[in-house]
Structures are given as structure tokens and as C-alpha cells.
Design a protein around this nucleic acid. Structure first.
Length: 468
DNA sequence: CCAGACGTTGTT
DNA sequence: GTCTGG
DNA sequence: CCAGACGTTGTT
DNA sequence: GTCTGG
């Protein structure tokens, strides 16, 4: 499902919005430069996106941390969890209380220093511009000398398509494509690829909205855009990891987006949707809590269909072509029932459609930017070619309301990045696979076991606040 | 013991 | 159809 | 996720 | 890295 989304905002702007939601950002990537997140209304797998996470260190997973004895202790805990999951939650909470300032989450004595130093170095490589303390904690604001420490949280640039830390060589594209999403029911199972990350490398993936293609026939697909009705950033539950290929010094950070069943509102469009969490909510705090190092039913229960209100409407087919990028991709396209959607949009925007149309009789015109820098002008009519219906989404398109984060800002179209990141690096790879043997088309044996998400919903609270 | 998978969506 | 690129 | 390419020999 | 299959 979630295989394409919109994120046109700069990290600095995202940081500001996080601040308003009382979500601390102790570090963030630079807006521009090598390794900076891509700003695009057509964000695709393989791009560098914006991820929010607790600063637990790159090795901050449940598996590869701590001394041998600590690990054994954890295994014991894990067995307990398997035996009696429900009862375990409470005990977990108690344990956490005692470890808030203890920094017991694994980074033991030795080798600790190295890890932290490296972590700081790589922050620079990833385009982060602020210095870090590297200790994964920070003084709470206004606490005076008695200030307690709280976990550090950071925005970070990472690549979409998770590559596990144990991976030896650069995986092919098909493999990466399979890890742009992680199923909630896969996380519910005990073993498997997600096992280490779900314990210690949970994150939030920052988007403005995502695209889904409605199948209207065997051949015809109509892209739809989905965003929050309240205009806030859409925060998706995710996992991240950091890999260092053999014979390489470089660390590669990647992420995946967790999917679950669709809610009622999106059912017409697709049967799956990303897990959406509300900004500033207790759920996000729980999901990112670095002190939770085991997978519990509490964490699993966060992965449920979204209960809040979304806005869904058909958009231009131009978005289908990767490399196209335009703010028009997130505005509704006219349907038979509502031919004037787009014209209304441009008029309400104050008559300047992106260097295109004037108000009045002139047809609205937009500019579609290719990633290589070329530009192409199109009238709205042209853009709607082939789009007939799509009425079910019922776009409301009231632009006047507040500042809608998901709405395009035509006066501030972020410059499309011209350079594709050349990854390959020092690795033979890709060479001459011309004659490849037939790929394995193994049928998926429908794993599941799907522990149906229970219905419990949590309320939004004040949040992270300064310390706890 | 070693070797190999591990992940998703969609479509039929 | 299958594979690659973004 | 979707779109688009997918092939060879020989000659200059 | 960890688990499964042979």
C-alpha cells in the first residue's frame, strides 16, 4: 500500500511543527546538502526521508547490545514475555521507572565510547548540522541544577526501504522494495526479520499525506491522495536500522512504514493502510520510548487502523510517473460531478497558479517539474485527461481554513533535487546480470495469524513535556 | 553440521 | 511477462 | 508504489 | 543476527 507519499517540507519547518506539538527535537538534519532529505510531492522508495526517533545509538537494538550476561538476562525476560504476555506489561512499567536516568538500555561500559563517537561523526555525514552530546540524553529545560535527564529525540535523514543491520552486500532493488512496509501481523509473530528492530529501533516516519491507486479496472488506476483533515503532519509508525556492509566504513540508515488493515474511510480504496499516530499523543511517546526494549502487547496494540478523520480525493495521474514533482499532485482533480474543483483551488489561492494561470477566464495552468530540472506546462484540462470519475472521495477542498500543512504552497515550491544520489559505492554489484535465471515466483503461503487489533483507543495528552 | 531465508503488495 | 529505475 | 524498457551485428 | 530445513 503505502508506496508513495508527499513530503515537500524542509526539516527546519518540520522541526518547528514538532515544537508546536510539544515533541522535542534535539537534533535535525540540514535542509540542504549531501544526505539531506528529499523534498517532494512524489516521494518514492529509495529516497531519503525524514524520520523521528529516540537517540538510542546506532547499535541501540535489543540484540547486539550490552554484555553477554545482560543479553542472557534479556533472553530470560523474553521467555517470560512469551509465557505470559499480559501480566508482563505491568512489570515492564515498573522496571522502566527505575531506569530512566540510569541509561541502562544496554550501552555498557566498554566500547561504549567508540560507538558514541562514531555516531556523532556520522551525524555529519547524514547532513545533520548540530553538534550532539552523543549520550542519548539531555537536560530537561528549566530544571535548574536538579534537572533530570530525559531521552534525546531527533529528526534524521534515512533511506526508505529497510535493510537489516546483518546484511552483507547491497541488496537488489526488488529486495528493498519488499521492505518499504512491515505488516503489523508480522510484528506480532515472534521470530523473523523485524524481531530486533521492533524492540529497539522504532521510529516515526514524517509525511504530509500518502498516495494510493484505486483500481477501477484491469488497466485503469486512479491515484488518490490521503491526508489528515486537521491539516497536521501525518506521523506514521515505522522501524529503522543501520547497516555497515562488509568492506565498507559507511553507515546506511534505512526505514520502513508499518501497515495495518484499512479503516472504514479508506476501505473503498484499499485493504491496507499505514499506522497513523497523532502528533503529541501518548501513543507516540510510548512507541518511541527508548526504555521499552521488549516487544509487548502494549506496543502491538498501537498498530491499529486510524480512528481520526482523513481527507481522500483523486489527483492527477502525473503523480504516477516517478520523477515528476509538482504541488498540484496534492490538490483534487475534477471529477464528473465536480468539474470546478481545480479552478476553485487556483482562485482561492489568489490567482497565481504557480506561474501559470490567471484568474478569470484563462484556464488554470500548472508547471510539472521533472526531477532533471525540465519543466513542462500543462493546463488543468490536460492533466485530467483520462480521469473520469473518482467521485467517491468527495474532496472538500476548503483551502481557506487555517494553514493546511498538506496544501501546496505555490509561492514556495521547494527546489527539486537534481542529483540522484549515487549509491553503488565500492561494490561490484550490478555488473552484467543480463542473463539471469528465472526468478523464484514462490507463492506466498499466507502466513498471518493476525492477532486482531483490539479496539482500545488512547487519548491525546500533553506529551513528552520536559522530562517525566 | 551448513545453507538459505528472513520482507510486501497485488493479481490471478 | 520480467526486470530496472526513481 | 508505478512507468518504461526489454534486442544484435557491423560499420564508421 | 537468528531461525528453519535438510
Amino acid at each position: 500500500m503505502c508506496g508513495r507519499y508527499a513530503l515537500a517540507m524542509r526539516p527546519s519547518q518540520i522541526r518547528q511543527l514538532f515544537y508546536q506539538e510539544n515533541m522535542p527535537v534535539d537534533d535535525a538534519p540540514a535542509d540542504e546538502g549531501e544526505g539531506a532529505p528529499r523534498q517532494s510531492y512524489n516521494f518514492a522508495p529509495g529516497y531519503n526521508g525524514v524520520v523521528y526517533r529516540a537517540d538510542v545509538g546506532d547499535r541501540g537494538g535489543a540484540s547486539s547490545r550490552g554484555s553477554r550476561s545482560q543479553r542472557q538476562a534479556r533472553q530470560q525476560q523474553q521467555q517470560e514475555v512469551e509465557q505470559g504476555e499480559e501480566a508482563q506489561v505491568d512489570e515492564r512499567g515498573k522496571r522502566d521507572e527505575g531506569t530512566i536516568t540510569d541509561k541502562d538500555d544496554g550501552e555498557a561500559v566498554e566500547g561504549d565510547q567508540d560507538t558514541r563517537e562514531e555516531s556523532v561523526e556520522h551525524d555529519d555525514e547524514a547532513g545533520n548540522d548540530e553538534k550532539t552530546t552523543g549520550d542519548g540524553a539531555v537536560r530537561a529545560e528549566g530544571g535548574g541544577s536538579k534537572a533530570r535527564t530525559r531521552a534525546r529525540y531527533r529528526l534524521q535523514s534515512m533511506k526508505w526501504g529497510l535493510i537489516p543491520f546483518w546484511t552483507k552486500r547491497n541488496p537488489d532493488y526488488a529486495a528493498v522494495l519488499k521492505t518499504i512496509n512491515a505488516r503489523d501481523d508480522s510484528l506480532a509473530q515472534n521470530g523473523g526479520m523485524w524481531n530486533t528492530m521492533k524492540k529497539g529501533k522504532r521510529c516515526i516516519v514524517v509525511v504530509e499525506g500518502f498516495y494510493e491507486w484505486l483500481k477501477k479496472g484491469p488497466k485503469e488506476k486512479v491515484p488518490h491522495y490521503v491526508k489528515r483533515k486537521d491539516g497536521k503532519l501525518m506521523l506514521l509508525a515505522g522501524l529503522w536500522d543501520c547497516v555497515e556492509y562488509e568492506n565498507s566504513e559507511d553507515r546506511l540508515y534505512t526505514y520502513t512504514i508499518i501497515t495495518t488493515s484499512s479503516n472504514e474511510q479508506l476501505r473503498f480504496l484499499h485493504d491496507r493502510m499505514p499506522v497513523i499516530l497523532d502528533p503529541g499523543s501518548e501513543e507516540i511517546k510510548t512507541w518511541l520510548d527508548p526504555e521499552r526494549n521488549e516487544w509487548t502487547s502494549e506496543l502491538q496494540s498501537l498498530l491499529k487502523p486510524y480512528k481520526g478523520e482523513l481527507e481522500v480525493y483523486p489527483v492527477s495521474k502525473e503523480v504516477g510517473k516517478v520523477g515528476n514533482n509538482s504541488p498540484t499532485f496534492v490538490i483534487p482533480v475534477a471529477s464528473k460531478e465536480n468539474k470546478s474543483n481545480i479552478a476553485n483551488f487556483f482562485q482561492s489561492k489568489g490567482g497565481g497558479g504557480g506561474g501559470g494561470g490567471r484568474t478569470g477566464k484563462v484556464k488554470p495552468e500548472v508547471t510539472v517539474k521533472k526531477e532533471d530540472g525540465e519543466e513542462e506546462k500543462k493546463t488543468v484540462e490536460e492533466m485530467q485527461k483520462g480521469v473520469d470519475d473518482g467521485g467517491m472521495g468527495t474532496p472538500s477542498s476548503k483551502q481557506g481554513v487555517k494553514r493546511e500543512v498538506g496544501s501546496p504552497d505555490l509561492e514556495d515550491v521547494p527546489p527539486a533535487k537534481k542529483k540522484m544520489v549515487k549509491e553503488e559505492s565500492a561494490s561490484p554489484v550490478k555488473t552484467r546480470p543480463k542473463i539471469s535465471a528465472t526468478k523464484n515466483q514462490t507463492r506466498s503461503p499466507a502466513k498471518s495469524k493476525a492477532k486482531a487489533a483490539d479496539h482500545g483507543s488512547q487519548k491525546i495528552t500533553k506529551f513528552f513535556g520536559n522530562s517525566a
